[in-house]
Write a protein that binds this DNA or RNA. Structure first.
Length: 574
RNA sequence: UGCCCGAUAGUGUAAUGGUAGCACAACAGACUCUGAAUCUGUUUGUCUAGGUUCAAAUCCUAGUCGGGCAACCA
């Protein structure tokens, strides 16, 4: 095992998980093998927070030449369904990760979990408890003082076995009996105070149907699943840290029973390690609240481009590479943090700058009449598809006497340092001609309805033969060739950084009314061929993606992924 | 109040007893047929107090602040 070749490169952070695994591999632990897992519960869609766990688990496995299992953690049938399973698979594959043949369900292991529970009972490590939940609450006690043992704690194994069997057979009502691990009622760690490991739940499971009416709890099921699959590193988020001793307890019991996997002569003893979740300002990551937004139709489904879900980011136009780069840049620690949205936006711009085709589109048009350009004439210019990537070639853009430009690219009385279009101020119409405004036409209200001016015929292509410098270059579309299309401008969904932070309110109290603005934009003809999912840079405006749902052949609808950086906006006078 | 975890520029993250770096953001400049991109530069940081040590962001002690834990959820 050469760790030289697997050492992280200088541009990836040597975060503590990466170091831990590198050390284990170097020490030859588990035969140097790395097997991780991503265990979503199929009760909702994956969001960018999950993407962090996905990138860590799949990423570490990939980096160290191992594998990562995808496992549906479906031990609570009340909330789970196949709809979610399929979407989870789609999103992870889209993110760029491959679980190969290692796709599992917790439900696959129900038999073995039951058998292990029986073995625990036989060895006096578990008992059937008849206390009600309310009673138990009192017995368990509070963290600052020890709990009291359940009156059923010392029941004989044979009796426990019989009761457990009858629980399985469906002889008892939901919530009446449960199986508890017998650990330590005095432990300062609440999770050690005889935790429930099986409960009675008469809910059909989306895969096992009504085969079971008892289901294992997460704390019992998870280590078993990891152990059975020979997981070496079980990497999860911080809230499971206090569960770790219990995780280890179950693994110890399995070890005693000789149930740990032996691979290439190495007994695989899974270890759990925890990292902090991803937090982003102005959004929410709570599955429950996300479901609420969908159900209340606050957003247009799970994949609404304002949602922090992976399908939402996808529809918005984000690339998997950008999301992976963002998560790598954000790092992995145990510190509860809030990562700046600017970093995410930086990552998507960086990716799209290299890959997105350039097109011209005017989103807030004002008409410009080129007075000295022949009425019926039209001509075509070659525009680069991507100046960052010359091999992307060119496309043809039509020009005529009347064009649209952005309203904000004109000032009748130009501000200081405004070097776009203004009376008497020469500008370049990108790829076309140099142009100088001579006068404006206004309506009764004083609003500019048209701008007039003349072009320099000798500047065809955008350069003057005399080499004179023109500071401003603006985009445009030919009125007669322009096509109106629907454009959706997205902004943050909430108006405050932490919409869940106020306990007296719900996140919907902070919805941003401006989070979606639908407008009509005028685009160059080449854009009409855009197919759903195709990404573009509208020059000088931003990155846009043809919506996968609303676009029809020849009639695209564009979603704004992110604006371009705009240093003029910062200095422009108000 | 008991236990667990954490604290490094505005934000996020490195430095593993030996020169506090990087990215994003901000600011300034260069360049530019995108006020984009690119390039150059600048500002800003080890929670506090003790201790160990030739040397502490790092080790120890105490404190402060923040987060988590008391579902038959995951």
């Amino acid at each position: 095992m050469s760790d030289e070749t697997k050492a992280p490169t200088s541009d990836t952070s040597r975060h503590f998980i990466r170091q831990l695994i590198a050390d284990d591999v170097a020490a030859g632990k588990n035969g140097g093998e790395v097997v991780t897992r991503f265990p979503p519960e199929p009760n909702g869609y994956l969001h960018i927070g999950h993407a962090k766990a996905i990138c860590i688990n799949f990423g570490m496995a990939k980096e160290f030449g191992g594998r990562c299992h995808l496992r549906m953690d479906d031990t609570n049938p009340a909330k789970e369904s196949d709809e979610y399973v399929e979407n989870i698979r789609t999103d992870i594959a889209w993110l760029g990760f491959d679980w190969g043949k290692n796709f599992f369900y917790s439900a696959n292991y129900f038999d073995r979990m039951y058998a292990l529970a029986e073995a625990l009972i036989e060895r006096g490590h578990a008992y059937v408890c008849e206390l009600t939940q309310e009673q138990w609450k009192e017995y368990r006690g509070v963290p600052i003082s020890p709990g009291r043992p359940s009156p059923f704690r010392d029941r004989m194994p044979a009796e426990n076995l019989a009761l457990f069997c009858r629980m399985k057979a469906g002889e008892f009502a939901d919530g009446t009996l449960c199986l508890r691990a017998k650990i330590d009622m005095a432990s300062p760690n609440i999770h050690f105070r005889d935790p429930v490991i099986y409960r009675i739940l008469r809910v059909p499971h989306y895969h096992t149907g009504d085969m079971w009416c008892i289901y294992p709890m997460y704390d019992f099921a998870h280590p078993i699943e990891d152990a059975i699959e020979g997981i070496t590193h079980s990497l999860c988020s911080l809230e499971f840290e206090v569960h770790r001793p219990l995780y280890d307890w179950v693994i110890d019991r399995m070890d005693e029973l000789g149930l740990l996997v032996v691979r290439n002569g190495h007994k695989i003893r899974p270890i759990q390690r925890e990292f902090s979740r991803l937090n982003l300002p102005y959004t929410i990551m709570s599955k429950r609240s996300l479901i609420q937004l969908v159900q209340d139709r606050v957003v247009d489904g799970w994949d609404d481009p304002r949602m922090p879900t992976l399908c939402g980011f996808r529809r918005r136009g984000y690339t998997p590479a950008a999301i992976r780069a963002f998560l790598e840049a954000a790092g992995v620690t145990k510190f509860k943090c809030i990562t700046d949205i600017a970093l995410l936006e930086h990552c998507i711009r960086e990716d799209l700058n290299k890959t997105a085709a350039r097109r011209m589109a005017v989103l807030d048009p004002v008409k410009v009449v080129v007075d000295n350009y022949p009425e019926e004439q039209e001509e075509f210019f070659d525009a680069q598809n991507n100046p960052e990537e010359p091999s992307a070639g060119t496309h043809s853009v039509p020009f005529s006497r009347e064009i649209y430009i952005e309203r904000e690219d004109f000032m009748e009385t130009p501000a200081k340092k405004f070097f776009r279009m203004a009376p008497g101020q020469e500008v370049r119409l990108r790829y076309a001609y140099l142009f100088t405004c001579t006068r404006v036409e206004k309506d009764a209200a004083g609003k500019i309805v048209a701008i007039h001016g003349n072009y320099d015929p000798a500047s065809r292509g955008g350069t003057a033969p005399d080499g004179r410098k023109v500071k401003g270059t603006i985009h445009w579309v030919s009125v007669k060739h322009a096509k109106p299309v629907e454009v959706r401008l997205y902004d943050r969904l909430f108006t405050v950084p932490d919409p869940m932070g106020d306990e007296t309110k719900t996140c919907t109290d902070f919805l941003n009314p401006e989070s979606l603005r639908t407008i009509t934009g005028y685009v160059e003809p080449a854009l009409l061929e855009a197919r759903g999912g195709e990404r573009f840079q509208f020059e000088r405006v931003g990155y846009f993606c043809a919506d996968t749902r609303a676009s029809k052949p020849g009639v695209p609808v564009f979603n704004r992924t992110v604006t371009l950086r705009d240093s003029w906006a910062k200095i422009a006078p108000k």
